[in-house]
Design a protein around this nucleic acid. Structure first.
Lengths: 118, 118
DNA sequence: TCCATATTCAACCGGCAAGTTAAGCAAAGC
DNA sequence: GCTTTGCTTAACTTGCCGGTTGAATATGGA
């Protein structure tokens, strides 16, 4: 069940994890099977499976089974509410895609080292 | 120390808590002293103090002492990186402030009942 | 100086979130 | 039908997070 609008709680805490953000970044380029999503990470497949469940619950991705493969695809509208909410603070000028590209490159060295603890 | 750019980790997990989002909403209207921030909530002052520390660490607010009062003020740029990041997923049309107003009203019934567990 | 006000710190507790491994299902292939 | 492949579930461990209370600190006022 797609459920009703996921809460901002769900969305933001889904985004709070670097692994999950990395996954979203990957899915931005292409739909992927669970195993493939898991490949670049050090953690177990089960862990990734859970991450995907969290993202799905937050409405950020959709998972649909075809055969024995479950395809994960981005649900871009999932970010809409959160985005609307954030935009309210300080009127940013309409965001520039170059900024985003740069950001992706910096913020998505994938997995492990990503954001060091201290 | 203002520290260097707070991580997306810090920002999103700060935003993941409804109490903290409510606080941001309050500060959107005006700078406030810690005690006043705490007033509408059921939880202890100490708890709010911690929430404010989290928000400050995430670069979303700034706290400056004047006399014995510590003023909390929004740091609108704190959301910038996160906003840039989010905008990358699905090009939303430049967000409309009315949306935001509506959202604040819905999403900020403050404190307790806010987002029910299940 | 002494007291009240404003805020944080310290120690502690319960719960949840993320990780693990091992077992369970489901669909394809031989 | 058995095995492999793809993925989830279950049970468990560990660590962080949000809450509490009570003491500590800092400033302003009488």
């Amino acid at each position: 069940m797609p459920a009703q609008q996921p809460s901002l709680d769900a969305i933001f805490s889904a985004l709070a994890d670097p692994t999950r953000r990395a996954i979203l970044g990957m899915l931005l380029e292409d739909d992927m099977a669970v195993t493939d999503v898991a490949a670049p990470f050090q953690v177990s497949l089960a862990a990734i499976s859970k991450h995907l469940a969290v993202l799905a619950a937050a409405g950020l991705i959709r998972q649909e089974r075809r055969g024995r493969i479950i395809w994960c695809k981005l649900e871009p509208d999932g970010l809409r509410n959160a985005s609307v909410w954030m935009q309210g603070f300080g009127q940013f000028e309409p965001v520039d895609l170059d900024d985003f590209e740069r950001f992706l490159r910096e913020a998505l060295p994938l997995a492990d080292g990503d954001e060091a603890k201290s």
